[in-house]
């Protein structure tokens, strides 16, 4: 694997269609288009524009980096499905990168990353050097004790409130989300670790309830 792989990264977990091309350790092309819907129609043409601008073809890529959320469920599936199709077609790995990992990228020390969920909710994850907590979804500032650590840096949409609440530092992310996704993907590729296929990170369980009417008792 080349030390500085060529990677196209994309993300549709929020109300946008974002793509970036990382090559030789630098982001050569980056495109972010705001849109509430239409990501499924726009994504592949946008990626083709990114490749064309860099003068590359699909087969020049070493890997695909894809944002796996958390975020809009449909949006995450759009990107993950496309990434899996591309990986199969190209015979190159697709590497899933969470929004938490993207926020923490480039930051020294443990990070408490927050990603907006709907309403007054946030998705949270604590990322430390070697360990991380399971991601959680919390209402307002109901931060789990496992994530209330001294010395963490709060990054993300609720960084300010969380930092004030737990008495920790806050910082801005080192990179834009799409750039970070590309960089994390490159780092994972270079690490040589075995790479599972990208899977959406929903954090929330599907909203489904068992039926209310019990089945009848069947008599002989």
């Amino acid at each position: 694997m080349p030390p500085d792989p060529t990677i196209v990264a994309f993300d549709t977990s929020a109300a946008q269609c974002a793509a970036a091309l990382l090559s030789g350790g630098t982001i050569r092309v980056k495109k972010v288009e705001e849109m509430a819907k239409g990501q499924a129609e726009r994504l592949i043409p946008l990626l083709e524009e990114v490749l064309a601008e860099a003068g590359l073809r699909w087969t020049d890529l070493d890997a695909i980096g894809v944002g796996i959320g958390p975020g809009n469920f449909t949006g995450i599936r759009i990107s993950v499905s496309a990434a899996r199709g591309l990986a199969l077609a190209l015979g190159k790995p697709a590497i899933g990168v969470s929004n938490f990992e993207a926020l923490a990228e480039g930051c020294d020390g443990p990070v408490l990353a927050s990603v907006p969920a709907r309403g007054d909710f946030s998705y949270l994850q604590l990322l430390a050097y070697r360990a991380m907590t399971d991601p959680a979804v919390i209402e307002h500032l109901a931060i789990p004790d496992t994530m209330r650590r001294l010395g963490v840096t709060c990054i993300g949409h609720a960084a300010h409130e969380i930092a004030n609440d737990i008495g920790a530092a806050q910082a801005a992310p080192c990179y834009t989300m799409i750039e970070a996704i590309a960089r994390v993907a490159a780092r994972k590729l270079a690490s040589g670790q075995s790479l599972a296929r990208p899977a959406p990170l929903y954090v929330r369980r599907p909203d489904a309830a068992p039926p209310r009417d019990p089945a009848p008792v069947i008599l002989p």
Binding site: I44, E48, S81, A82, A83, G85, A87, L88, A89, L90
Partner: peptide, 19 residues
């Protein structure tokens, strides 16, 4: 069901683009 249809369409697009 749109979620499933979307997963199929996007996977197909990835395959078609890459090949």
């Amino acid at each position: 069901l749109i979620g499933g249809v979307l997963a199929g369409v996007m996977c197909a697009k990835g395959l078609a683009a890459g090949t």
